[in-house]
Design a protein around this nucleic acid. Structure first.
Length: 224
DNA sequence: CACCAGGCAAGTA
DNA sequence: TACTTGCATGGT
C-alpha cells in the first residue's frame, strides 16, 4: 500500500465526516433535547418511542403542570392517572408502565439524583438500562448521551434511512452495526455524537421523509 | 381515507 | 436468528 491511512480514513469514514460537516454548516449548534432536568430527558425518551415529538410535548407539559415530573412521584402515583396525563403521546397504557419501570430504576440506582450516574461506567450503565422493561437500545443510548453526557451515538429510524440512501449501510443493518460504524470514525465526544444524531433527525424530518424522494434542498443532496 | 411519527417486547418458526 | 404483531394518539 502506497499511502499511510489514519484509522478513520477510508471511503466510509470520509463520507461520514462529510455528512457531519455539511449538516454542521447547515444547522449550526442545535442545542438539542432541551429539557428542564435530566429526568425530563428520560421521560421524553420513553414517550417519544415511535411517536411524533409534538405529541410528547403535550404529555410532558401535562406532567409538569401537575408537578409530577419527578421519579418518586411517578413511582407513587396512580397508574390510571399517569396514563391519562400522557395520553396525547400514544401507547399511553404501556408507556405509563414503562415510566414506572424507569422511575423505579432511577430511585434504586441513585435515589433520584441523576447526576450521581454520570460517574458510573458507561458500558455497565447501558447494560443496566437495557435490563429495564421498556428500555431498548435507542432509549438507553438517548439517556446516556442526552441526560448523562456519555460519548454514545444514538441510532434511530432516520439514521438508518439516511445512511442507507447514501450507501453507507444495507437497509436491514442492525442497530449495533450502525452504531459501530459511527464509533469507528468519530471521536468519543458526547457533544459531537449528540449533535450528529440531532442533525440526522432534523435532516430526516425536513428532507428525507419516507414518501418524498430526495429533496432538492437537502444539505446532503451532493453526497453520492 | 391512508400513512407516518426520534421503539419495544413477546410470540412464532 | 429473523420475522410478525400489538400498542394509540395526532398531524398531513
Amino acid at each position: 500500500m502506497a499511502g499511510i491511512k489514519r484509522k478513520s480514513a477510508g471511503k466510509q469514514g470520509l463520507k461520514l465526516r462529510k455528512i457531519y460537516n455539511l449538516l454542521d454548516g447547515h444547522f449550526g449548534d442545535l442545542g438539542w433535547w432541551p429539557a428542564g432536568s435530566d429526568f425530563e430527558v428520560i421521560v421524553g425518551s420513553i414517550l417519544t418511542q415511535n411517536t411524533a415529538w409534538s405529541n410528547v410535548e403535550k404529555a410532558i407539559t401535562a406532567l409538569k403542570r401537575e408537578g409530577l415530573l419527578e421519579p418518586d412521584k411517578i413511582l407513587r402515583m396512580d397508574t390510571g392517572r399517569l396514563s391519562r396525563l400522557i395520553r396525547p403521546a400514544g401507547y399511553y397504557r404501556i408507556k405509563a408502565l414503562r415510566l414506572k419501570e424507569i422511575s423505579r430504576f432511577v430511585m434504586a440506582e441513585c435515589e433520584g439524583k441523576m447526576r450521581r450516574l454520570r460517574a458510573r461506567n458507561t458500558e455497565k450503565l447501558r447494560e443496566s438500562l437495557l435490563a429495564v422493561k421498556g428500555v431498548g437500545p435507542e432509549t438507553a443510548d438517548s439517556i446516556l448521551v442526552y441526560a448523562l453526557e456519555k460519548p454514545v451515538f444514538v441510532v434511530d429510524a432516520y439514521t438508518k434511512r439516511i445512511f442507507s440512501r447514501h450507501g453507507l449501510i444495507q437497509g436491514n443493518a442492525s442497530y449495533d452495526e450502525v452504531q459501530s460504524l459511527v464509533r469507528g470514525h468519530f471521536p468519543p465526544d458526547s457533544r459531537i455524537l449528540n449533535q450528529f444524531h440531532a442533525f440526522l433527525v432534523e435532516t430526516g424530518k425536513r428532507f428525507c421523509r419516507k414518501k418524498a424522494g430526495l429533496c432538492e434542498k437537502c444539505p446532503l443532496r451532493h453526497v453520492s
